[in-house]
Design a protein around this nucleic acid. Sequence first.
DNA 1: GACAGTCTGGCAGCGACTGCCAACCATGCT
DNA 2: AGCATGGTTGGCAGTCGCTGCCAGACTGTC
Lengths: 202, 202
Amino acid sequence: MKQEAKTAAGAPATLWDRTRQLASQEILATALRLFTEQGYDETTIAQIAREAGVSQRTLFRYFGTKEDLLGGDQDRFGQVLTDAVGEQPADVGVWEALRAGIAAVQVLHDSREQALERFRLLHNTASLRAGWLEKRLRFQEDLLPLVEARMGTAGGGADPRGRAVLATAFACLDAASMTWVANDGKGDIMDLYDECLAAVRG
Amino acid sequence: MKQEAKTAAGAPATLWDRTRQLASQEILATALRLFTEQGYDETTIAQIAREAGVSQRTLFRYFGTKEDLLGGDQDRFGQVLTDAVGEQPADVGVWEALRAGIAAVQVLHDSREQALERFRLLHNTASLRAGWLEKRLRFQEDLLPLVEARMGTAGGGADPRGRAVLATAFACLDAASMTWVANDGKGDIMDLYDECLAAVRG
DNA sequence: GACAGTCTGGCAGCGACTGCCAACCATGCT
DNA sequence: AGCATGGTTGGCAGTCGCTGCCAGACTGTC
């Protein structure tokens, strides 16, 4: 259940945890390979489990959902995002604070290639896109109180402005990443994000 | 299944078509009732089919997807939207044109109550939210060329600004409708939308 | 009344996902 | 070393959304 994934270097904890982590990596690698090879929808859980050498039941214990096999740690995304935004000084504006959060998330990507590969899958697969948008919406919900506090709007559901600012920031991130993928990973996502915001806010 | 052997009154279309339409309405009404009564995820296709008096197979022939039982004509939404935007005079700005399109869609709702009921289900059910966002993304893709033409940006994937403006407009609509639902349908969605845009671009 | 074209329901099956249960095995205690 | 413990695993059955297939019932036409 809960795992201190602090196995950065050495300190291999118990043998169990090491085995767990190994299996987890194996499953993740197999899934990503098959997804890029033959597409997300065309890859079945049974196939991933077979090629990774585990049972379907175990696979579902590691990753509760087929989607989780791609995103890996989307939950950590949300964590890093809200943390980064929350840690911004109080005198920083909303837009700047959100920018800082988004920038913090970008650092989490392992490599440009892997990020590009994942984004490409995400943008080209309807079911994945849907799931991702849904998760992103939950991040927005988590961020909402922070944003409203920074804007001075009382929120409580009556004032739409906090939600609007938040949704716009993510919308720009969306546009930026889609353009980034369309350009085969050329340029920097944050630059594109800035360009998007500038286009929107004049 | 059973049918009124008489139906003497009026015969505008063939009996087939009439039966079909009747069954369709019956299914739709049953589905909406069960969804609001016990929730979307807790309602099975088998239950809807049983209470509507048709087989599952037939139900799936009428509505290809469980989601289709709620939205009904989401496709028409997109149609009206793109038509309205496209029909705006050439000298109208992007933001204004998009606003006109969104306003055109609002007219399609049957009644305030029904719209509120549907929106409530939509915003409270994760799977539905995901599907809706996905479909909305497709609308954005349809709208993109129109927006880029109006902005003078030669899209082709290289320029993110068209996508950014588009996504922002929808983001504001999202924030507006969520606030509308949170306030139990009080006020006008378009007013909230304007407020959102002002907060973003102000 | 016979024929053709639809529509329907039932059945089997796929894929994602879950609950249950028996077998397993690293770990800790004696 | 021996043994109990508790987390881990895999298989089996089952649910739910959804599809292909096939036989039978129905409507409309000649």
